[in-house]
């Protein structure tokens, strides 16, 4: 997760009520709002169905199992844009930004980018 994305996430967390519901990301696909990380609540995850791809800043990242097959080899970071216009229901949009995926450069995994997603065993 990029510093910009972390700052956006911090705003979302600050606005959440104390002891609020935990969050999760689902990688979406298709149509206008597709291929974006959608921030939702952990309760929106379907246990035993959704596949966890990894973790970003303490938030588990999931995908539909058929979609996950193609994502496990993809190495991406979660970045943020200031433009809040989106077709998704992703929760951060109400806090002045939006999460997007960015492809990592070809360089080997960089330890300075700790929230790189990788497949969980």
């Amino acid at each position: 997760m990029t510093p910009r994305a972390r700052r956006l996430l911090a705003r979302v967390r600050a606005a959440a009520a104390d002891g609020g519901e935990p969050f999760a990301f689902i990688i979406s696909g298709g149509c206008c709002g597709g291929t974006n990380p959608v921030l939702c609540h952990r309760a929106n995850i379907i246990d035993g169905f959704d596949v966890q791809l990894g973790e970003a800043d303490g938030i588990a990242v999931y995908a539909h199992p058929d979609h996950a097959r193609y994502l496990v080899t993809d190495r991406f970071v979660i970045d943020a844009l200031d433009d809040v216009r989106s077709d998704t229901f992703s929760l951060e949009i109400a806090h002045g930004g939006r999460f997007v995926l960015r492809e990592l450069p070809d360089s080997p995994r960089n330890s300075a980018t700790p929230a790189v997603l990788s497949r969980t065993p």
């Binding site: 597709g34 959608v38 939702c40 998704t88 229901f89």
Partner: peptide
């Protein structure tokens, strides 16, 4: 709109995750 108890039906065109959230 999607969670509103006074709405009887939602027709949505968009991406997968928002579809299932709806």
């Amino acid at each position: 709109l999607a969670s509103h108890p006074g709405v009887d039906k939602i027709a949505f065109t968009g991406e997968y995750v928002t579809g299932r959230l709806i």
